[in-house]
Computed example of a mutant assay.
Amino acid sequence: MSEVDPEHLEAARVLFARQATFMLGCAKIEQLPEPDLPEIAFAGRSNVGKSSLINALVGMKGLARASNEPGRTREVNFFDLDGKLRLVDLPGYGWAKASKGEVKRFQNLGRDYLRGRVTLKRVYLLIDARHGLKAVDTEALDALDLAAVSYQIVLTKADKLKKGEGERMREATLKAVSKRPAAFPEVALTSSEDGDGIPELRAAIMTATGVEP
């Protein structure tokens, strides 16, 4: 990602240091809360580290539950950041243990959210930095382009890579999505484990939403 001004990084740190709470999990589109706050959403395969990234952004280990509790993977989960911003965890895809009908149901729920949410400012599509974009991710990219929702690729688990591999993967990923109409022209490289890239991602989210600390 491009260089971020230190003052902007600090403002983003202050914003994400605010009280974060789990609001609700929605199994049906009718259960979504009123669209009265800016929202950002996180999408990705069920084992890509969405919960870990959300927890790292807000500095809380237990806010979002990890993927070994798959019940909540099937809902659209809303987290409130002190009445300023909502973080939305979309149902994971590629979850092999669910039935085909169940998978379709909760993936359709995610698509319905994307299509009709007027307060959605950006989607962050998480990709495991060790593997890059896979065929299973193409459907998600297509759905985001179809919904005309601005999205940014976030590479996760960068701490698992050897030196230099992260930058190569970031460049390759950016090239792969460069012609997609709704893709934001930067790729974030992050590690929830050691915190690399998290301050910059906070700053990017603050800019995308226009929310002040």
Rank of each mutant, 00 (worst) to 15 (best):
A158P: 06
S51T: 01
G210W: 11
I153A: 09
P35C: 01
S150D: 13
A64L: 10
K162F: 05
P181E: 13
S99P: 11
A43Y: 06
T138A: 00
G164L: 03
Y124Q: 08
H8I: 02
S46E: 07
A27M: 10
G110E: 04
N68P: 02
R72A: 04
E212S: 12
V136Y: 03
S178P: 04
V14N: 06
L53I: 14
I198D: 03
A204H: 02
P33W: 09
S178Q: 15
A148T: 08
L63P: 06
M206A: 15
L125K: 02
K121E: 13
L81Y: 01
R105V: 00
T73W: 12
A98H: 00
R13V: 01
K61R: 15
E69G: 07
E167R: 12
A11N: 12
T73C: 13
G71W: 14
L126V: 06
V211T: 04
A208H: 11
A176W: 13
K179H: 14
L9S: 06
S192E: 03
C26E: 10
L126I: 07
G94L: 09
A143N: 00
T156K: 02
R122N: 04
E165V: 10
G195R: 01
W95E: 13
A98S: 02
T119S: 15
S2P: 11
E7V: 06
L32N: 07
A66R: 10
R111E: 11
E167N: 13
I153S: 08
D82P: 04
L174P: 01
V14D: 06
K157H: 04
S99Y: 10
G44E: 08
L144K: 09
T209L: 00
V187N: 01
F106G: 08
R180C: 06
P213M: 05
T207E: 15
